[in-house]
Design a protein around this nucleic acid. Structure first.
Lengths: 200, 200
DNA sequence: AAAAAAGCTGAGTGATTGCTCAGTACTATC
DNA sequence: GATAGTACTGAGCAATCACTCAGCTTTTTT
């Protein structure tokens, strides 16, 4: 690992766990084992360093998700939803810092005045919601999912799963205890209406 | 309004919008129109000031919710859920700063080392989840809600609604656009299984 | 091996931070 | 109107901050 990569790694941990203002460049330098000046040699200032962290986070999450979902066949849209939900919860455990960063407020506040920041955040959420939306649309074609607005439905499922992950990250409730229930709730929410006909 | 109350009000806005570290006592003083020393006269330090803000937030949310729900009769548990969800979204708009504060990470980080902080946060979430849980239990008695673990179900509904509110607060998606869909999704999730019998 | 370029250092800087404290202004009690 | 207690002030302090820069070391190019 290059020094630049090492700085980026330490910065990711510090920014996600302590926030932007509460993370000093001196701490990052100490954690990495380099002089403080080295940080400013590779990244011209603290904001650019954070943007590099966010860019890496964006690439990480999108690549992980895309490569997982694309190398897979689903027997139904509903099954795709189940798999995506499970994988999201798995990823949030594997890359805790990345998800903690996305749950904090400061990146979204910075996004208001820093266009590059907004782009990274939007890219991440668009990718994730798109995956759920495609699964909903597929499920509606194959009959495994009821007729309802695909984008809105994808958003609601995403907020539900992400909400549980946030509760875990924030140390309020244990997400893993809700793991099975989340999947079950999704299925109930999405299942097609049972018509009388179905019984004959 | 006393000076102490004015300081508390300004501090609530500043802490919720800028976070803990990024809010200076000088700014709060300037916003309130008092000398910086006045803050330290009423609250002995910055942490105590924040705890006072959190205590006020706790009282605000719990009082609003309890007085709203207790002065009301519901024809079914399902209706109670609908009402609680609607009211939660209404409150999150009315007291944006309070909810933004609860969505930020720093209070939960502080809660690890400051017991009083943890107490306030737990009190707020316990109150809210309890309301949903009671509605689920009532709905299971009157037949409007399917048989499923009440606490876990309450948590899932809560994370869903709170997740949508967070998306709005973080300026990612507009919660109000999902308003009707959230209620509809809850209903689908909670509706009792339709058995063949029901058709005869 | 000389020259050039890239990588890296850490003391130093001006700005900002939370907080103190000696002193002033106001209010209540006698 | 003297006394006492509470409310309030703002200059000042030590600590910390992001960032600079002159100079050193290592690598690459010629």
């Amino acid at each position: 690992m290059t020094r630049k990569e090492a700085i980026l790694q330490a910065a990711t941990i510090m920014f996600s766990q302590s926030g932007y203002k509460d993370t000093s460049t001196a701490e990052i330098a100490k954690m990495t084992g380099v002089a403080e000046g080295t940080i400013f040699y590779h990244f011209k200032n603290k904001e650019k360093l954070f943007l590099a962290v966010l860019e890496q986070t964006r690439a990480l999450i999108i690549d992980e998700f895309n490569s997982f979902m694309s190398h897979r066949q689903f027997s139904s849209g509903m099954e795709a939803i189940e798999t995506a939900v499970s994988f999201y919860m798995y990823l949030s455990g594997k890359f805790e810092n990345a998800f903690l960063l996305l749950h904090r407020y400061f990146p979204y506040k910075m996004a208001v005045s820093v266009p590059g920041c907004r782009q990274h955040l939007e890219a991440i959420y668009d990718c994730l919601v798109d995956i759920f939306e495609e699964a909903v649309t597929a499920g509606q074609k194959d009959g495994s999912i009821a007729s309802m607005p695909p984008r809105k439905t994808a958003l609601i499922i995403f907020t539900m799963v992400d909400g549980v992950v946030r509760f875990k990250t924030y140390n309020l409730y244990d997400a893993s205890a809700l793991y099975g229930d989340i999947i079950e709730s999704c299925k109930k929410m999405l299942r097609p209406e049972q018509t009388a006909e179905a019984y004959f």
